[in-house]
Nucleic acid binder design. Structure first.
Lengths: 188, 188
DNA sequence: GCGATAACCGGGGACTGTCTCCGTTTGGTG
DNA sequence: CACCAAACGGAGACAGTCCCCGGTTATCGC
């Protein structure tokens, strides 16, 4: 899937410069940062940006792969040092916090778990789903998670909880509370 | 709070025409329907639209008051004919369904339950919070709802669940399932 | 080294949308 | 029926997205 011929040196330079700038810009202005502005800040024409990243989605994805892989790694850390149920909720908490606090990430994670009907399973979707699946399977095996729950459902619910928490204070202080409501239910 | 002097006839005509068109437009294109286009379709200049409705939010709100009041009325119907816990979940279901299926409504409901720190409690926010409060109080009194849960929290969570369900299939078929996960918890 | 050429660059421009400003029109009142 | 405040409307400034294409340049075979 890599280039048959390696990227030309200038192309690679621009590609990387764009990515750097994009990370900054998304952090600064959220998912809707102006693309033309990113191009300008990177010192390239907008044509160059759109050639490397045909859609905002593509750029967003490229800009956040590192962070998503970090998140996936964290899943395995938690799995190693905590009992399965705790590892799962701890990771979901981490995921929700990142969703809210890392500007621009929410849109990406959202589209990573939308129905999409097979086709466009984005790269980051694979990463995050993989991590979720490992934790979910462990918790089910332990018997502390309903067996009818799919990893992807949990990711969607986490996205929903992050949204709810964002409505509350915009900072995610309510995440732990909402997460515990989900795990324990609303009954007294 | 009504006009000291009643609206001029042409102003009222335009106001109502704009509202009609806005309802259609939001239904058709979602919350981001073009405002200038709404003005054009209503046969008025964009200046007129922006004078009557200074922000998209204002227009959205005016266009959906009816539906929101319908939703609030439904809360009282459910309260009258079902036990409190059932009435609450049934209404939350209704709310989530509307959130997803009525295009444009989601944005409005979202901002109706955001923190906002007192100040801008929109009219529709009051309506929907009132309905929720009545149902929540009844369920708490009955002892089938954790007493530490605020109505507004439940509205936010419902918004989150709607978001999650939207990610799943875009149609809200998962709402009941997600709602039951919330009420019962994730444990087997 | 050195040309040929495919790959790449960049910015101008078409398009869509938002929102304001101000000259013009109009409804209602005395 | 004349006046004037209220309301109109649309041109235009601005911002964003995305494409296109003439010009440039890195790389490969020699």
């Amino acid at each position: 899937m890599t280039q048959v011929r390696p990227m030309r040196a200038d192309a690679r330079r621009n590609y990387e410069r764009l990515l750097e700038v994009a990370v900054e810009a998304f952090a600064e202005h959220g998912e809707n940062a102006s693309l033309d502005d990113i191009a300008k800040r990177a010192g390239v024409g907008s044509g160059t940006l759109y050639r490397h990243f045909p859609t905002r989605q593509a750029l967003l994805e490229a800009a956040f792969v590192d962070r998503l892989e970090g998140l996936a790694a964290k899943a395995d850390e938690f799995a190693a040092e905590l009992p399965p149920a705790a590892a799962l909720t701890e990771w979901l908490n981490e995921l929700c916090v990142a969703t809210i606090q890392v500007r621009g990430l929410k849109a990406l994670l959202g589209s990573a778990v939308t129905d999409g009907s097979s086709a466009t399973v984005t790269a980051c979707g694979v990463t995050v789903r993989g991590a979720a699946t490992r934790l979910v399977d462990a918790a089910k095996k332990e018997g502390t998670l309903r067996p009818d729950i799919e990893p992807i459902e949990l990711l969607r619910l986490a996205h929903g909880l992050a949204t709810a928490s964002e409505l509350a204070d915009g900072q995610g202080r309510e995440i732990r509370r909402y997460l515990s409501l989900l795990t324990e239910g609303l009954r007294p």
